[in-house]
Design a protein around this nucleic acid. Structure first.
Length: 223
DNA sequence: TAGTTCCA
DNA sequence: AGTG
């Protein structure tokens, strides 16, 4: 009867999960932004198409990337760096749309970090089989600011470890709309993504899109 | 070492 | 198949 209805309507998972010191998983946080988000992403990708970067070790990354904002993360045989210019076009990365800025700032605040003004939004596209091995985000100059990671499309297994590569990792299934925020003592935590399982997502099809927001430069510039 | 592969 |  009605009692059965109420039992199945309630949330099975908590909306906010602590996954480490200064690290939170915000389930479904990006859902309210979805309608504005999708056209904004389409426009960014139109101006700066996804491309597969080469690591300093000479390997082609399975994840395809592009950027939005005043700075973008790039990798080539000479190393990792942030650059204001898209090496493919020779022109600046597409500006970060207000909806992306707002999503990043709101999520950071919900994760315990007020005043987050991201300068760079790295956009990663995973197709089935694509993965990101365990690594640290340490090319930024400002480690006081957190990392904000937004999941869209197919679900993925997120690996979250400690400050040493050898630290044990925990696995979290991230679904469309989930946001992970890590900073403070977790800012340099090793993390990665397991090979994407095949599937079909109603909005994005056979792919996962991840947005990673970072503050790169030191100090008040960019705030 | 934001890589791949093998093996317990 | 997942983990280390």
């Amino acid at each position: 009867m009605t009692a059965d209805l109420f039992e199945t309507v309630g949330d099975a998972r908590p909306p906010r999960e602590t996954i480490g010191e200064g690290a939170a998983l915000l389930r479904g946080f990006a859902k309210p932004f979805e309608a504005e988000l999708m056209p904004a992403l389409r426009e960014i990708v139109r101006q700066a198409p996804f491309r597969h970067l080469i690591t300093p070790g000479g390997h082609r990354m399975s994840v395809a990337m592009t950027n939005s904002g005043s700075l973008g993360w790039v990798s080539d045989p000479s190393g990792y760096r942030y650059d204001g210019i898209d090496p493919n076009s020779g022109t600046p990365w597409p500006p970060m749309p207000p909806v992306l800025r707002k999503l990043a700032a709101d999520a950071a605040a919900a994760g315990g970090f007020n005043g987050f003004a991201s300068e760079a939004c790295l956009i990663n596209r995973y197709v089935p089989g694509a993965k990101l091995s365990l690594h640290q985000d340490k090319d930024e100059l400002d480690f006081a600011a957190p990392i904000v990671s937004v999941s869209l499309g197919l679900p993925a297994i997120f690996l979250f470890g400690g400050l040493k590569r050898s630290d044990p990792t925990r696995r979290y299934r991230l679904e469309h709309g989930d946001v992970v925020v890590w900073g403070g003592p977790s800012r340099l935590a090793f993390h990665g993504v397991a090979p994407l399982a095949d599937g079909e997502h109603g909005l994005l099809g056979r792919q996962r899109i991840n947005l990673t927001f970072r503050k790169v430069r030191l100090g008040a510039a960019g705030r």
